[in-house]
Simulated scan of single mutants.
Amino acid sequence: MSEQHRADGDRDASYLVFYNTAHMHDDVPGLPAMVAVRVQRDHATGTFEMEYARHPLVAMGEAWLVQRGADPAAFARQGPIAPADRETERVEALLRGSGTRRFEIHDDYSFDTAPYDTWVIATDTLAADPARPVRVFHDRRQIDADTYTLREGHFASVEDARAWTDDLDSPLPPAVLSPSARAAAALLGTSSAAAGWARVISTPPPAAPPPGNGRPPSR
């Protein structure tokens, strides 16, 4: 799904995110389908070391690799499936640069049937709105277009977020302006720049899915 390679003298490293096709055969349904792998090679000693971890989203796997020396701006996406829009790229950039401590993950589920939805419930430790610190990240594939969308919604509690996952077609509560963003928008008034700012940092609801896609209940 994603890779980069870096070299430093006699040492080089590869950072990769794979889609694990065997995840659908796990004893527990819904486990993460992505595997992030770091391979470090020492040519002077002829040795290597490797570590890996499972993640529900590609960008979360990339965030884990960034904490192990990867450059967040140097990942090359592989395969035919591409982000559907700029909002997807924005949310992925947020996750990729979040490190491993900003988001405390409570639950996630990866479907192994079309349209291959994935959702993640996490508390944002840096939430701009303390009344809604919980986020849902929802990934959905557009199979006919070979694209995917990634959206975020803000909730007051983990229980509210879990209730939303019972109907993945329902709109996600949009993100809110941070205090600094509200102040900047107020200074700009009703100008086109202010409107553009609001569009960038707000989150639209997910695109409507193809009809007839049944889903098992969330865990």
Score class of each variant (00 low, 15 high):
Asp42Phe: 10
Glu104Arg: 12
Ile201Ala: 06
Asp12Trp: 15
Leu126Val: 04
Glu3Gly: 04
Phe103Met: 03
Leu172Ile: 05
Pro204Phe: 09
Met60Phe: 10
Tyr19Asp: 15
Val58Tyr: 05
Leu65Met: 06
Asp146Ala: 14
Thr100Cys: 01
Gly61Lys: 06
Pro56Phe: 11
Pro115Glu: 13
Ala175Glu: 09
Ala122Phe: 10
Ala194Glu: 06
Ser180Cys: 04
Pro173Val: 09
Pro174Val: 07
Trp119Tyr: 14
Tyr109Thr: 04
Val39Arg: 13
Phe137Pro: 00
Glu51Ala: 13
Met60Thr: 06
Asp71Gln: 05
Asp27Phe: 13
Val17Met: 09
Ser191Pro: 00
Gln67Ser: 08
Leu31Pro: 00
Arg96Ser: 01
Ala163Asn: 03
Ile105Asn: 03
Ala175Tyr: 05
Gln78Ser: 08
Trp119Phe: 10
Leu126Gln: 08
Pro206Ser: 02
Met50Leu: 15
Arg140Phe: 10
Phe75Met: 08
Asp107Ala: 13
Ser218Glu: 08
Val37Ile: 11
Thr100Asp: 02
Phe155Arg: 02
Asp26His: 14
Gly79Met: 11
Val176Asn: 04
Ala208Lys: 09
Ala184Lys: 08
Pro32Val: 06
Arg90Asp: 02
Ser110Arg: 06
Ala161Thr: 04
His25Leu: 15
Ile143Val: 15
Pro83Asn: 02
Gly212Pro: 00
Phe155Asn: 03
Gln67Ala: 12
Leu177Trp: 05
His106Val: 07
Asn20Met: 14
Arg140Cys: 01
Pro216Cys: 06
Ala194Gln: 07
Arg41Leu: 13
Ala207Ser: 10
Met34Trp: 15
Trp64Tyr: 12
Thr21Gly: 07
Arg102Met: 02
Trp119His: 03
Glu104Ile: 05
Asp160Met: 11
Gly99Ser: 01
His25Pro: 00
Val136Phe: 12
Arg141Met: 14
Leu168Lys: 04
Arg135Glu: 11
Asp167Phe: 07
Glu159Gly: 02
Ser110Trp: 07
Thr147Arg: 12
Arg68Cys: 01
Gly79Trp: 11
Ala63Ile: 06
Asp107His: 09
Ala63Asp: 04
His154Gly: 01
Leu65Tyr: 07
Ala208Gly: 02
Ala53Leu: 09
Tyr109Arg: 11
Val91Phe: 03
Asp129Pro: 00
Phe111Asp: 12
Ala59Val: 03
Phe137His: 09
Val37Ala: 03
Ser170Asn: 09
Leu168Phe: 01
Arg96Ala: 00
Ser98Trp: 05
Ala198Cys: 14
Phe155Ala: 03
Ala145Ser: 13
Glu87Ala: 05
Tyr52Met: 15
Arg219Gly: 06
Asp27Pro: 00
Leu65Lys: 05
His43Lys: 11
Arg162Ile: 05
Ala181Ser: 11
Ala70Tyr: 09
Asp10Ala: 11
Glu159Phe: 05
Thr45Gly: 08
Pro32Gly: 01
Val134Arg: 08
Pro205Trp: 13
His138Pro: 00
Thr118Cys: 07
Ala33Gly: 06
Leu188Trp: 04
Gln78Glu: 14
Ala44Cys: 05
Ile81Tyr: 07
Phe103Asn: 02
Ala161Gln: 02
